[in-house]
Computed example of a mutant assay.
Amino acid sequence: MTQQDIKEGKGLAIVSYLALIGIIIAYFLNNDKNNPFTAFHLRQSIGLWLMFHLLGFVVSGFDNWGVTSGFYLFFCVLFIYGLINAIMGKAQTVPILGELFQKWFSNIGR
Rank of each mutant, 00 (worst) to 15 (best):
W104P: 08
P36L: 11
L42W: 02
L20W: 12
I23M: 06
A91F: 10
I25G: 02
F105C: 04
T68C: 06
K7D: 14
F105Q: 01
L20P: 06
F101P: 00
G9W: 07
I80T: 09
D63G: 13
I46V: 15
Y17P: 00
I84H: 07
N85C: 11
G66W: 15
W104S: 09
T2K: 11
G61F: 13
K7A: 12
Q4E: 15
Q4W: 07
M88A: 13
G9A: 07
Q102D: 04
F57G: 12
I108M: 01
L48P: 00
K7G: 08
A26R: 01
V67E: 03
A39W: 01
N34P: 09
K7C: 01
N31V: 15
N64V: 09
Y72I: 12
G66C: 10
E8T: 11
L97R: 05
T38R: 08
Q3W: 11
I96P: 09
G70T: 09
E99P: 14
G98M: 01
S106K: 14
N85L: 07
Q92M: 14
F57I: 15
K10M: 08
L48W: 03
L20S: 10
A39D: 10
L78S: 05
W65M: 14
I6C: 02
A26D: 03
V58N: 04
I87T: 06
W104T: 15
Y81Q: 15
F62L: 11
L42P: 03
A91T: 14
L73T: 15
L54H: 11
F52L: 14
I46M: 08
F74K: 00
I80F: 08
L83N: 06
E8I: 08
I23N: 02
W104H: 03
M88L: 14
W49H: 12
I87H: 05
I108T: 06
S69W: 14
N34F: 10
E8M: 05
I80H: 07
I21F: 12
G89M: 03
G82A: 05
L12Q: 00
L83G: 01
L97Y: 13
N31G: 11
G109C: 04
S16Y: 01
L42D: 00
F28M: 05
G47E: 02
I87M: 12
V67K: 07
K10F: 08
